[in-house]
Design a protein around this nucleic acid. Sequence first.
DNA 1: TTGTTCTAGTCAGATTCTCTGATTAAAGTA
DNA 2: TACTTTAATCAGAGAATCTGACTAGAACAA
Lengths: 139, 139
Amino acid sequence: MNIGLLLFIPSREVENRILAAVVAAGFEITQAQARVLMRVGPDGTRLTELAEAAQVTKQTAGFLVDQMEKVGYVERVPDPTDGRARLVRVTGKAKEAVPVANAEMARIEAEWEQHIGRRRMAQLREALEMLGEITDPYR
Amino acid sequence: MNIGLLLFIPSREVENRILAAVVAAGFEITQAQARVLMRVGPDGTRLTELAEAAQVTKQTAGFLVDQMEKVGYVERVPDPTDGRARLVRVTGKAKEAVPVANAEMARIEAEWEQHIGRRRMAQLREALEMLGEITDPYR
DNA sequence: TTGTTCTAGTCAGATTCTCTGATTAAAGTA
DNA sequence: TACTTTAATCAGAGAATCTGACTAGAACAA
């Protein structure tokens, strides 16, 4: 079976479940917004970088950041090192969602480990980490 | 690092590259259409099943099948076992894209194997196949 | 057989996401 | 200074997706 599909299925499972958990906890956020939000670094990240990391155009990233800014999940602050740029930063409000997401993620990982075993789970993660080195445009 | 993201990145890489290869070969198809098309079985598949497998609503699946039908990649035939249903079938025209997609997939897998090694590649596939058992709504 | 309920698919309408192309302002460079 | 590049935004359009309502056939219960 096609490894692209094999990757896609659990990837979507994780996305769906984490989003559902976060939304159930009262946060108003969409999948597309979350994909961008996930890529915001601890000290803020430029829009252009976000766009590249999330693999969308700057316009799309800007659109999603606009929405998240409106509901207060991110803020834009001037970049002190470059007058043209602004840094997108995650606010405290959005950070409250992190433990919710982590809890659901832990639940999923536990289920998976239950099914495929601890050894294979570790191998899966190792292989994926390495693949990230050549496929993640963020690095 | 979040395993959802770790899965998402290479998954999108595969999608992007296969789509690009197929489009470059002269086929007019989109990512969303391809995701549905991939799930059509050898003897045809009902729209409802396609929707479930591709994790979209019936309306969305219908919309995408309409488009693919217009350009001749699929056809709808009555389901002999159920007067309400119709089977979506892949046409010969669309099947011509399969070797193109397979070739690109092979190229990607070779690159990956180059980077992570044959053993890890096999472990990755094994783990993903097993995960599919509990996460693939098609099965 | 005859209702009643369920299922497959479609229609209508709206929202969300995403893109291409053009523009502005600040940096970098010759 | 003048030219080129870069970060971000504006404007407009197209693609993908959804919710809700509907039709026709199937399944089932009395």
